[in-house]
Simulated assay, not measured.
Amino acid sequence: MQYVIVGIGGQGILFSSRVLGHIALSKGESVMGSEVHGMAQRGGSVISHFKIGKYSSPLVKAKEADVLLAFDQNEAIRNLHFLKPGGKAIINVHAPEALENPNLKRFLEERSIELYPIKGYEILKEHMNGKFLFLNVLILGAMCGAGIGNVTLEEVKRAIEELAPPKYVEANLKVVDLGYGAMAK
C-alpha cells in the first residue's frame, strides 16, 4: 500500500504518517516513508510519502500511489498525479466548486480516480470550536469511513490512544469518529 499525504505546515501530516506506521508495525508489516517539508514552518507545502509492504525506496512514483490523503484541496490538486489508475483521494475541501473544473474531471475520469471530499473546516468549526489542529485525525477517520487505506477505525483509535499526548486523546477520538461518520457509506 502506497500513500501520499499532503497539506500545508501545521496540519498534522507527520502525525498521520506516524499513526499509519504504528498500525502497520503492530501488524508486523514493513514500513518506509519520507517527508518533504519545504516551507512547512511558514505554512508551505508538506508531502509525506509512505509505504507499507516490501519496497526498496521510500518515495512514491507518479501514478503509483493507492491513496492520497489531502489536508488542503489545493495541495490535493497539485499532487493527484501520484495516484495510480483506480487510486482514491480523501480531500479536505473549502471550495468544492474547484473540483468541478472540466479539465480536472477529465483527468480523474481517464484514470478512474475516486475523490472523497470532506468539509473538514466546517466540521471542526461546528464540533470542535474551530480547533483545526484535529484535521489530521478527521482525515484518518474519513479514510476509514470511505473504506480505503486497509486500516480500520479501531486500529486508528488504538494508535491515537498510544501516540497522542494524553491531554488530547479524548478530543482526537471524538474527531476521528466525526471523520468516519462524515464519510461512512
Rank of each mutant, 00 (worst) to 15 (best):
G149Q: 03
I139E: 03
G7Y: 02
R106T: 14
M183S: 13
A65H: 03
N103K: 14
K54T: 11
G86L: 00
F50Y: 11
N129W: 06
K174F: 09
L25W: 05
N92T: 01
V60G: 02
E170F: 07
F82D: 00
G10M: 13
I139G: 03
I47P: 09
L25N: 10
E97V: 05
Y121L: 11
Q2Y: 01
G21A: 14
N172E: 06
I77R: 14
I123Q: 06
A142G: 09
R158P: 08
N136K: 12
I91T: 02
G7H: 02
A171F: 09
P165K: 03
I77Q: 15
E29G: 06
M143W: 04
Y121P: 15
L59V: 10
L68D: 00
K51F: 04
Q2R: 06
K105I: 06
L133C: 09
A98Y: 14
Y116F: 15
G53H: 00
M1N: 10
F132T: 13
L83K: 00
G141R: 01
T152K: 05
V175D: 13
S48Y: 10
E162I: 04
Y121I: 13
K61C: 08
L135T: 15
I47T: 12
G147V: 00
K84M: 05
G33N: 11
G145H: 01
Y168W: 10
F71T: 04
L108I: 12
S16A: 14
E170W: 06
I91D: 03
L124N: 13
G179D: 01
E155P: 02
L14W: 07
I118G: 07
I160A: 00
